[in-house]
Design a protein around this nucleic acid. Sequence first.
DNA 1: GATGTGACTCGTCATGCCAT
DNA 2: ATGGCATGACGAGTCACATC
Length: 251
Amino acid sequence: MLEIETDPIDLAELQTYVMQLLGARIEIKPFAKANSLPAFLRDRYSLFAARLLNHRCILLIAADGIDETPGAITKHRALLQRDYPDHLIILIANRISTHNRQRLIAQHVPFIVPGNQMFVPDLAIDLREHFRKQRETPADKLGPTAQLLVLAALQDKLAVWTPTGLAERFDYSIMTMSRAIDELEAFDLATAQVQGKFRHFQFRITGRRLWDAAHPLLRSPVRKRHIVRHNAELARLPLAGESALAHWTDL
DNA sequence: GATGTGACTCGTCATGCCAT
DNA sequence: ATGGCATGACGAGTCACATC
């Protein structure tokens, strides 16, 4: 299946991308003759008429929730091409995987991924190996760095509240701290305010309420369990879990 | 078992924005 | 104009999982 995001295609972004790449404006308007097309095509795609560098084009945008294989798209495109032989028929998608990109190219299907890729042999080719990441929906758990901030806050060890200060405090990069704050905001645990060039964040809640809210979002630091034989080498490793608790506290 | 693919995590670089 | 901060884009390293 072709991975087409359900996010609507941003036609303005498409226009900007084409302008940057070709130095020419692409004029886009709804495809007036859409009603004369077979129903299964109208159901599957939004169609737009466009004009670019004196070429008449039909832009094919997959409808929400429609996942077609490159082979099916090739057939649909061939149907349109039969009726409109003088038009360039171009698939528009927000994202195309490497594998499907190769299949589309192999089948000579022109496509544009706004801001990222263009394969229209009659006009231009712009293929990059690195693709725009899909806008992440928040994961179901906090990342390690965000988790660190929660635990530090619970222990009153957060003396600074900016990405830069936190990066120095915990020996992470500023970028990593910035992303951790993004995560805490996404989970509604914290708010961040930009004051001048500083971004200050604070937890919405503290203490027990913060722990209760964050607890379901925490992940275990235990990745795997192995059974090992006790030996002298092992005795020099740091204690963990209940052993550490028994050693370092009165519990 | 080897290989390919994708997810995850974090670092680096470039750039835009803001304060001075 | 300059310097510092925040952030987007991209790359590296690692791991898990699927497939052959």
